[in-house]
């Protein structure tokens, strides 16, 4: 099967996922040529194409003023027009890939594999991949035939980039092949998230609280611990959804990326969207009452206990020491 990868980029830089998609493709079809497709407009687009020729043996460039912002609906049309029959296409499973992938599979008449974290094996045209379900609490092997093509969404960070790749790809301009670019969805503008009172991206010590806190009133025990430790309070998405804390406190792919030295995760299960916002390899302590919580697989230190009882005791002890 002929494999392609759709590359997202911003401000003239290819997304980190570009090399990860190349790595995943190499596992699906070892030794085969893989073609990258990059859409956009202007100079930035050429820069991005040049950046990725080391990872892909061919780069297709599609330049159109209408593709300056990657509107998932338009890109779907472009890809449906460009891709040969029964093609396999890899896309990063980020907010753009989630928008594009499922509908694209329908238009191509191919299978769709969402949020793939590993390639298990390929046997003829039968591909077996690894996925996660229930917020990462269990994994599954998922199998499908690639005979009619496939749209394969790859979870960012799951495949190690080959830093020494030398694919030496050439860039082909296919700007003339976009096909019809009318769509019922029109991109208007981007609105940046609001800045909060505390900048958690600059803090060395974060006490992060998740849905395990159970009630807004219980936040007090987290604030008291943070005060005793000289730390700032951060949180997972459900705490913001419930309007218990400001969006500017949310760590994760749709929140902020933090780089603390110490990260105390209290009542947080450890979804990849949350963990994706923690960079710089901090010392992570997870406190969770479920011994099977996925966060224990990635934390440095784990404590199985009820945070509602444990955190006040911890605060008390720290206050005792420092007074």
């Amino acid at each position: 099967m002929k494999l392609f990868a759709y590359i997202t980029h911003r401000d003239g830089t290819a997304d980190d996922s570009a090399q990860e998609l190349a790595a995943a493709a190499a596992q699906i079809a070892p030794g085969e040529a893989v073609t990258a497709i990059v859409t956009g407009s202007g100079e930035d687009l050429q820069t991005v194409c040049d950046q990725i020729t080391s990872s892909f043996s061919e780069v297709i460039k599609v330049d159109s003023s209408e593709l300056g912002y990657p509107n998932g609906e338009l890109i779907r049309k472009v890809l449906t027009n460009l891709l040969p029959e029964n093609a396999g296409i890899l896309i990063a499973h980020n907010t753009f890939g989630m928008d594009l992938g499922p509908g694209l599979s329908i238009k191509l008449g191919s299978v769709f594999l969402a949020d793939v974290v590993g390639i298990d094996k390929i046997d003829g045209d039968q591909l077996t991949v690894v996925r996660q379900e229930f917020g990462g609490q269990v994994s599954t092997h998922v199998q499908c035939s690639l005979a009619a093509g496939a749209v394969i969404n790859i979870r960012p960070g799951s495949f190690a980039a080959d830093e020494n790749a030398e694919a030496g790809g050439s860039v082909t301009d296919r700007s003339g092949d976009t096909g019809d670019l009318t769509s019922g969805r029109k991109f208007l503008e981007l609105v940046e998230a609001e800045v909060g009172d505390v900048d958690i991206t600059k803090e060395d010590v974060l006490i992060a609280v998740g849905r395990g806190i159970e009630d807004e009133d219980n936040l007090e025990i987290v604030e008291e611990l943070a005060e005793a430790m000289g730390a700032a309070v951060a949180c997972s998405r459900p705490v913001v959804d419930a309007k218990w804390l400001e969006k500017s406190r949310q760590v994760g792919t749709s929140g902020l990326t933090v780089k603390p030295k110490v990260y105390l995760a209290c009542g947080i299960s450890g979804s990849f969207q949350h963990m994706g916002g923690i960079k710089g390899n901090p010392f992570v302590v997870a406190i969770n009452k479920n011994p099977k919580a996925p966060i224990f697989q990635v934390a440095d230190v784990g404590i199985v206990t009820d945070i509602l009882d444990f955190l006040p005791e911890l605060t008390e002890k720290i206050e005792e020491i420092s007074s």
């Binding site: 509107n71 980020n94 907010t95 753009f96 969805r185 029109k186 991109f187 208007l188 503008e189 981007l190 609105v191 940046e192 998230a193 969006k247 949310q250 792919t253 749709s254 929140g255 902020l256 990326t257």
Partner: peptide, 9 residues
């Protein structure tokens, strides 16, 4: 989208 940015359509 990423980073809590809102894409208006």
């Amino acid at each position: 989208i990423e980073g809590g940015t809102i894409e208006m359509n």
